[in-house]
Amino acid sequence: MAKKQNILSVFLNGLVTENPTFVLMLGLCPTVGVTTAGSSGLGMGLATTAVLVCSNLFISLLRNFIPEKVRIPSFIVIIASFVTIVDLFLQAFLPDLSSALGSFVALIVVNCIVFARAEAFAFKNSPLLSIADGLGMGLGFTGAITILAVIREVFGNGTCFGVSLMPAAYQPMAILVQPVGGFITLGLLLIVVNALRNLASKKSARKEAA
């Protein structure tokens, strides 16, 4: 980490370089569990982003006041409070999304992305950088699970964000919107992403050599 951390690089780090879903493989449960339709994927991603940004900010602000020894319980309380706020907000203003996501909203508390960023980043960095990190990681997660959700919705239901997309003759592969399809689609998507990353790293290696 010799490079000086600026806001943009921290943001991009979360969004691409250390994408929580495709690179760090964190937060698998919602990734497989709620990505049955584009709207739930996007909603879940944004809800997680909101919690992540708020908890990162708060933990960063309080980092000089929280004793090292009780940091874990403190993180839990801070994260759980924001999760409760987001949960109540969704129930009040977006009841459809709230019921589609079910208990997965409450389970953001134990989403390892949120916890990992609190421990690894926010507790050690300034508030502004922590917000950038929360946004980058959150949107990286949102992007990844929305892609997954759209793939599953298009092939498993024939629609994209509820809009009919496939020709009428297409018979949706219903298995894709079930847990089975979540595992398999994520596995296949990872193979593609890994191949792309290999390609990119080979290219940059060649560039450096030249």
Partner: peptide, 10 residues
């Protein structure tokens, strides 16, 4: 089984 879950009517 995969086909059965996907296209149960067929």
């Amino acid at each position: 089984a995969f086909l059965f879950i996907s296209w149960s009517t067929i």
